[in-house]
């Protein structure tokens, strides 16, 4: 493991902590897309099927359990917590997230390394993660007021993807020289989806203004 990978994982973890902090401390999930959060539950469940069949490291095992657990906790808060669920912008969270599942699954059936349940579902989780942020970005675009914690959550999530790209570059040139096309391509697509958000996030930060995305 290199420093970029570790920094990427920590940024990912930090983004989740920021989101849970927002929900728990302010008892509000306004500006957060439940659809994106539900997609992340599916992403983690399908990717970490090997949790009990293959041991990589204690670090990997703990992180996998944390990602699965926190994603369930967030969805639980948004759906069932009696105060939090009332702050959910249901009418603005309009992205048809189910339409992302089938194309990602078909693509995973067509493009994978090995035709096994584990590998196809692992590939599916990579394709799905690449596009899972879309409902969240659409919701942000429709929100007049994006609060700081929501903006920071998406910023750290994007930073995590950027650091993973650096990790792959480092790994390829300085560690194992192995091409991993499926994670690379889906990771690059995912990172590119954040470009627009990053542009406006940095702009608002420079101008000391509240973040607002153009419609």
């Amino acid at each position: 493991m290199n420093l970029f990978r570790l920094a990427g994982d920590m940024t990912h973890l930090f983004s989740i902590i920021v989101l849970l902090l927002k929900i728990h401390a302010t008892k509000s999930c306004s500006g957060i897309s439940l659809k994106t959060q539900e997609l992340y539950v599916i992403v983690f469940l399908t990717r970490y099927l090997d949790l009990f069949t293959r041991f990589v490291s204690l670090y990997n095992t703990v992180m996998k359990i944390v990602f699965i657990g926190t994603s369930f906790a967030i969805v639980w808060y948004m759906r069932y917590h009696k105060v939090v669920k009332q702050t959910y912008n249901k009418d603005e969270d309009t992205f048809k997230h189910y339409f992302l599942l089938l194309p990602c699954f078909v693509l995973a059936l067509l493009l994978h390394n090995e035709f096994t349940t584990m590998d196809v579902l692992w590939t599916f989780s990579l394709y799905l993660e690449a596009v899972a942020i879309l409902p969240q970005l659409v919701l942000l675009q429709q929100s007049r007021n994006i609060d700081n914690l929501t903006g920071n959550y998406v910023f750290f999530l994007g930073a995590y993807r950027g650091l993973y790209v650096l990790n792959w570059i480092y790994r390829y040139f300085l560690q194992d020289h192995r091409a991993r096309w499926i994670p690379w391509i889906s990771g690059l697509v995912q990172t590119a989806l954040y470009a627009d958000f990053f542009y406006y996030y940095i702009l608002s930060w420079k101008k000391h203004e509240k973040l607002k995305l153009p419609a």
């Binding site: 990978r5 994982d9 990912h12 090997d50 293959r54 990589v56 990997n60 992180m63 996998k64 990602f67 390394n113 090995e114 590998d119 692992w122 993973y164 990790n167 194992d176 192995r178 991993r180 994670p183």
Partner: peptide, 10 residues
């Protein structure tokens, strides 16, 4: 054939 470290990232 999948090497073990093909799936080692999170």
């Amino acid at each position: 054939y999948l090497d073990d470290d093909d799936h080692d990232e999170l």
